[in-house]
Design a protein around this nucleic acid. Sequence first.
DNA 1: CTCCTTGTTGCATACGTATGTCTATAATAA
DNA 2: TTATTATAGACATACGTATGCAACAAGGAG
Lengths: 331, 331
Amino acid sequence: MTVTSRDVAQLAGVSQPTVSRALRDDPRVSEATKVRVRQAAARLGYVPSDVGRALSSGRTRRIGLLLTDLENQFYPHIIAPAFHQLESLGYQLMLHTEAADNDVVAERLISNGLDGVLLATSTIDSVVPLRLRDRGLPFAYFNRTSTAVHADSAVVNPLRGMDEAAAALIECGHRRIAAILGPANTSTAINRENALREALAHHGVSIPAHYVHRGPFDTATGQAGTQRFLEMAEPPTAIICGNDVVAFGALNAARSAGVDVPGDVSIVGFDDLPSAAWPIIRLTTIAYDLDAMVRRAVELLVDRIENPQRPVEESAFESRLVMRDTLGHIR
Amino acid sequence: MTVTSRDVAQLAGVSQPTVSRALRDDPRVSEATKVRVRQAAARLGYVPSDVGRALSSGRTRRIGLLLTDLENQFYPHIIAPAFHQLESLGYQLMLHTEAADNDVVAERLISNGLDGVLLATSTIDSVVPLRLRDRGLPFAYFNRTSTAVHADSAVVNPLRGMDEAAAALIECGHRRIAAILGPANTSTAINRENALREALAHHGVSIPAHYVHRGPFDTATGQAGTQRFLEMAEPPTAIICGNDVVAFGALNAARSAGVDVPGDVSIVGFDDLPSAAWPIIRLTTIAYDLDAMVRRAVELLVDRIENPQRPVEESAFESRLVMRDTLGHIR
DNA sequence: CTCCTTGTTGCATACGTATGTCTATAATAA
DNA sequence: TTATTATAGACATACGTATGCAACAAGGAG
């Protein structure tokens, strides 16, 4: 059923290695032979086998993207640019998700024969980076990092965005400010929390413990946190969310509670997903160049694969506040 | 650097084939040997190579999912359940996107050594199904079908949903009804259009040509179509959208134009994505069990791989109207 | 005591491609 | 003419695993 390079070789009257070389346009094969081989290949409908190639060359030209929750609205915005950037570099993308057992995940990544891995959801205590390093399997951090292993990374620097957000909140008269943050074992959540607290501190404002809600970066977290805040005797007048998806949950909770945004409570997101700009949402949020960040992570990873000795490079992307309709003056 | 089954064999004092069998728990290997082999494997940190396995066994245990636009909000809701269902069956998922040249896509699918392919975006005139069939590469249609090749499929039957939607529209006094439909070369768009027209015909209503807008299933299409409709001298009082993502675009356009939904215009979607139920959206839409449909497509495909002779099975999923807040009485 | 089973393992080989080395032929220079 | 080099292709082999088959030992049946 399958046509192999041997079949092509036979039809073209050459050896199998010559077919291999001819079809990859190796200069060692004469033009006349190339033509003959290409014709034979076309006649037989020959399609080279990636598996055979991978085994022989020791490279699959496939890289893995490790995520947690595939349903999350955030991920398509990673997957799409990563896919296209990799495609343009001649690589393919393979999705993987974290499982309860980190070691199982690492084994799967290794057994897959991937040329490299993009870690988009590493917790700071994950063993995956360790396992990959021990195997010599190249990887890069995207969006999050782990302190356990130093490696190439592309992340957001939340400082400026949080500064601008804090200034805008203060300017609008907000003093009772709450935060819905991501999991405490992610660098993303930690960095954003630190940046936020520092920015508010410049204005003499701090976030009390009861105004902090933590949970996964999903809508349910935003919804639960906001609901909790709104039921308080003295609810916050503004809620900063760990990311846009969380903020969408917050908007939902406010709407469900019949609470006006930004009249009764202001809500700020982080990421500036395309849907944040939708006229029916118009979320005030902290933006950065997500596409460029993805492309950078891919670029770093592929370069690392092809050039293992290069020093580690940590790429940070600037953030800024985008004012829309969910942040307003206190009533 | 890489530990192979040979290394394990040497350490355990057995032959390489025995390692292969022992680790896969082959009954032909004695328990004592299995223990020895497993210990040796653990000590060396041996992880079997999928590539070697694939070449030897002729199967990769990977299936491809062919999509068009990875950014589309619709796809995460396909990718996630497909991924998990495949994982539970011991398969891995590989994303692929359509390209300008269909033949290139088909070649890529074939060269990848996939065990099967899920076609989620076939146009009715795509050559991909033909190429796959010619190669004997199993595939199944998801959501859309192509008439060119008969194959397993899991699709929505829009009849009931459209009937209920038409009845609700008429009940609410709508007569000037517009439609924003998908690409004319997709079975999905055709089936939904036919179902809609038929349903309306029962009530003596038809959709004039100028009330029809066609385009890809994305928000831009919904936005453009709605904007066009709203600028008309006699705009429609209701707009039926090809799917929810299109409907989101329609909602955006209405909001941008300062037009009230459903006061000035009603909007109906199709798919009932999780976000359609969000309190800040509350889209009236036609629902079906998307998760079950995905799982069914995966199930059919995997079964086809393992049991090639089974007769073709076409699975249709019932649809129904979900009333929320974007369909209301005409003013 | 021989034959046959049963259970366990090793041997040989296949899967499809890539690549280092060697050879034959032709072209060039002396 | 001969020696030298360049060129083009063949040959051999490697990559890591799986699997049909042979081999062998131990034990039971006749």
